[in-house]
Amino acid sequence: MIEVKLTEKAIDPLACINWVMSDNSGGIDVFIGSVRSETNHRKVMRLEFEAYGEMALNKMNGIAKDVFDKWPVNKILIHHRIGILQIGEIPVLIAVAAAHRAAAFDACRYAIDTLKQNVPIWKKEVYEDGEIWVAAHP
């Protein structure tokens, strides 16, 4: 089973974990991204996330389907925030449930790494004295 979502509301880790848990899964792996207070020694005030919604959801669904092709997993959930996030909030959560832990670990790692490369979502870091679209410039 797959659940993929772009949301303007806070991500609830416990609700996500509960969604992937089931009696046939012995291992749950969870990746939680969190908004850091500092980047390259600059104090971050907040992050602003923007997505190409339809394509982002297509790509997130594609990642989830790839995971099922590559590993024996039972459930995967990928949630990503859009809009303004404060320090300590959760921009992304990926949870994978499998019968055994190795598949859950590997699939979760693959999902976050691929999301960061191919899902059309952008973040702007806002500092006290400026702002930057992350990865935009060399």
Partner: peptide, 10 residues
């Protein structure tokens, strides 16, 4: 058609 700069989600 959409112009997509280097992505930076997550």
């Amino acid at each position: 058609v959409a112009i997509l700069p280097a992505v930076s989600g997550g």
